[in-house]
Amino acid sequence: MTLFEVRDLRAGYGKVDVLFGVSLTASKGELIGIVGPNGAGKSTLFGAIVGTVGLRGGSVFLDGEDISGKRPEDIVRRGLSLVPEGRQIFSGLSVIENLTLGLTGRRDKHGEKGALERVHDLFPVLTTHRDHQAGMLSGGQQQQLAIARALVADPRVLLLDEPSLGLSPTVVKDVFDRLIAIAESGTAVVIVEQRAHLVTRLAERTHVLRAGKLQATLTKEDAADEAKLTAAYFGNSGE
């Protein structure tokens, strides 16, 4: 059953339109990819979904409820969390303070302790650095913190904007292994990546976003087909 649906979403900044009708869906436990070149509108799409970028049309449904146009702090309470581009951890606060802030978005306040324990199992390194300043963590550890901080809110849908940014290949593999585990636990995971190959192999479906529209959708099988992937990514219309 569809848990998360974006329907004909339009968004932009000031006089500029960026998204021209984007639609996608994700079910419980599914991992969905979105790829596309710089400036395609990937971050804008996530911003419009979580309420930090103004909507100009279309809607977002979470478990059947229309959440479009709600404020970011209300959307996260409904179970949709974003790990923003560039991680955006609070570098001046400690690791545990960052995680505590993540708890703010929980619907159920009783499960706080359990949520922190689960994060500890998934990202033990964060427990080691519990009281350290988050800004002192390595890039990979900061990415883990950003994901953990979103996870402690127990999201039903987790959006990640370029989780591989600035990480070495081994660390990227590590992070993606955790994301697969998170999806397997029942969360719908939507990943934006510029490095398309990172997600196409894992994702149920990978959408190619170019110039504010979804230009193609690839399945895992398509991903193996290099030519098809390249064509979808760069567009074959010669525009």
Binding site: T52, P72, V76, L101, G105
Partner: peptide
């Protein structure tokens, strides 16, 4: 903005 994303009202 990030604080709001985490649920800060």
């Amino acid at each position: 903005q990030t604080a709001r994303l985490l649920g800060v009202r």
